[in-house]
């Protein structure tokens, strides 16, 4: 039997081969992401999205569909534009001076950047949870009631119901029901993050954006947030940005890989982690990037 040639690390992806011809074994791209099954029910439709910070282009001609009631994850190296894309979805980039956007983003069929509605009303449809948990310096109750209150809800009984349901949805109710008037800042990190998710869903958004929601949490709390994300997709469309690829693999139905402002590949998560279509995706997820 022929002896194996030992290849130098990081030169070749394929198993036993040493040559550059290994690339030829990859089949050509078979599917356009817009035609993937499962995307018939879009919640977010992005078309030809370009985004600039001053002269610097951060997103290049992104077109994609984010399906309703699914978890969609964006992965990619730092600076690839995944957080920028996430922030475009609820117009948070409006707050960045010198930022400008071209293209369209529709959420539930409504153009987020060309709608007569007030931006705060539009943002109510898109909740967001950040990397660093940031409860208000208020009581646990007030943290959750804050959103519905500023949107005009004053009925105490209704607010109580929303607070209870929201905290139950994030599996925090049993842990805090006896101390709703304590400060939200007194909770543990994992609990604070769940409180932030409860605060986000209290206004019943259609889409829940999560920007690295577990990066400051221990594995146990991370597990709870991941479980939540999977559970919450029944009611909401979840979009998550994560550096933790295994997290994307565990919880996302669809995954997009971004690189230098491009959406390189978008598709079913299981396919992405077993047989990605693009070499750049393969290089990144197998740790051979760069």
């Amino acid at each position: 039997m022929a002896k194996i040639k030992v290849k130098a690390p990081s030169q070749s992806l394929n198993a036993f081969s040493t040559s550059s011809e290994t690339g030829k074994t990859l089949p050509p791209k078979k599917k356009n992401h817009l035609t993937l099954p499962g995307l018939e029910n879009p919640m977010v439709e992005i078309e030809n999205l370009d985004f600039y910070y001053g002269e610097k282009q951060a997103l290049n001609d992104i077109s994609m569909i984010i399906p309703k009631n699914k978890v969609t994850a964006f992965i990619g190296p730092s600076g690839c534009g995944k957080s920028t894309l996430l922030r475009c979805l609820n117009r948070m980039n409006d707050l960045v001076e010198s930022a400008r956007m071209q293209g369209t983003i529709k959420i539930g069929g409504v153009n987020m950047h060309n709608s007569p509605e007030d931006v705060s009303v539009l943002r109510k449809r898109v909740g967001m949870v950040f990397q660093k948990f940031n409860p208000f310096p208020k009581t646990i109750y007030e943290n959750v009631a804050y959103g519905p209150r500023i949107h005009g809800l004053k009925n105490k009984a209704k607010l109580d119901e929303i607070v209870e349901n929201s905290l139950k949805s994030v599996a925090l109710w049993d842990e805090v029901k006896d101390r709703l008037n304590d400060s939200g800042l007194g909770l543990s990190g994992g609990q604070q993050q769940r409180l932030c998710i409860a605060r986000a869903i209290a206004v019943e958004p259609e889409v829940l954006l999560m920007d690295e929601p577990c990066s400051a949490l221990d594995p146990l709390s991370t597990g709870k947030i991941e479980e939540l994300a999977v559970g919450l997709k029944e009611k909401y469309t979840i979009v998550i940005v994560t550096h933790n690829m295994q997290q994307a693999a565990r919880i996302a139905d669809f995954t997009g890989f971004m690189l230098l402002g491009d959406l390189v590949e978008f598709g079913f998560t299981d396919r992405m982690f077993t047989k990605p279509e693009k070499k750049a995706t393969e290089d990144y997820i197998t740790g051979r990037f760069g």
Binding site: A15, T274, I285, T286
Partner: peptide
């Protein structure tokens, strides 16, 4: 926890 080509290998 290999993925893609490594996982298949």
């Amino acid at each position: 926890q290999p993925v893609a080509n490594d996982l298949r290998l």
